[in-house]
Design a protein around this nucleic acid. Structure first.
Lengths: 214, 214
DNA sequence: ACCTGAACACCGTTCAAGT
DNA sequence: ACCTGAACACCGTTCAAGT
């Protein structure tokens, strides 16, 4: 069921009535299975995450596997544009696929040397960043703008700013041409991972020399 | 004009027709000033950012000022819930307030020692993270859930998971009680800033010893 | 030429009427 | 008791009709 929903959604935007027509069923029949449109969207978000699984233990060190999870998470969201827009502004999803990925991600974070409180906050920070990226990219894709068109659009917007008022921005306009969405996403992902690695390393060092804290 | 719009929006949700009623004007009159609802929302996002300005040069070192900008950005978004939800999924806003803050932020990032390409990507990463957080918090606030109720809700959801299947998550349930939205937000913000500081430091070191790169 | 508001094509959801 | 679909209260936007 939810699989059919995700499929229906993959083609553009989405409404209860359109889904009913797509499934050749009375739109009201959907309310038998889901209390709300929100409940249905929640199920769809979880279904969208069924497409990818946590990388196996031999896929690299914990950092590399976290990186792969982040990349896979974003890819799964972008594959379902109608869902991606909503996941950025929805309450936490507690579906089986989401929970499995959360568990795997938190496990990897503790392997980095993070404590319980740090691990769960680090997970949340990663998800916020990834959904923020997905939310920002979605309107560009759904408007049918190609990545290169988009880069040129941003470049010319920044290049045409008055250089006196915005010296940095106007000078940096050309930078948009060199970086694609993937590279931009991974830049921020790596920032977060770098900082988490460093934090784990510090924790371990403090554990090994507990008398040295002052 | 846009100020009145932001005000109207501050009270819950928002529609063209409701705005017309609020302004005691024909709803269609709005289309004289804005081509679209999207164009209007864009103007509202920019107007929401008029509330805060970049911290002055004597407010601390670049990192501290970047931190204050991040905190202020989030606060401005949360003060306009109807806008906050949309900013997470809208195309980049090129209004005067947004651009002024972007310029100030990018200037501070270059002060950290980042190159042009790094600075603009770092800015984007920070914005994605902040809008991701705003998008995640907005539904909680607009549902009228208090922060402590929300924490308890999350705790019990995680605590009731089968410990065999989700060992980390079920063990970490209590962590939700100790961290508020502010602390959670600043945790992720500091991760990004820590990594950016480190990157700037490495750039400077490489500049000082150009022969040492291998 | 400008402004108005009725009308169009939707939407999520309720609920009375059928079976 | 279950299912259906007409009806309700919206929505963004168009466009014909007025001034």
């Amino acid at each position: 069921m939810a699989a059919a929903l995700a499929l229906a959604n993959a083609s553009g935007d989405f409404s209860m009535r359109a889904l009913g027509q797509r499934l050749r069923v009375d739109p009201m029949a959907i309310y038998r299975h889901f209390r709300d449109k929100d409940a249905l969207l929640e199920a769809m978000v979880d279904a969208a995450l069924a497409d990818f699984e946590a990388p196996p233990a031999d896929a690299g060190d914990p950092v590399e596997r976290l990186r792969q999870m982040g990349i896979g998470f974003r890819r799964a969201l972008m594959a379902h544009p109608g869902v991606a827009l909503r996941v950025a502004t929805t309450r936490p999803v507690l579906g089986p696929h989401t929970l499995a990925l959360t568990e795997a991600c938190v496990a990897l974070l503790t392997e980095l040397g993070l404590g319980q409180g740090e691990a769960i906050q680090a997970y949340s920070a990663l998800v916020r960043y990834i959904t923020g990226v997905a939310g920002a990219e979605q309107p560009v894709h759904s408007a049918g703008t190609s990545e290169t068109d988009w880069q040129e659009e941003m470049r010319s917007a920044y290049a045409s700013l008055p250089a006196g008022q915005y010296p940095h921005l106007s000078r940096m306009a050309d930078e948009f041409l060199h970086r694609g969405f993937d590279e931009q996403f991974e830049f921020g992902l790596d920032l977060l991972l770098d900082a988490l690695v460093e934090r784990g390393r510090r924790n371990r060092a403090a554990d090994l020399t507990p008398g040295d804290l002052g």
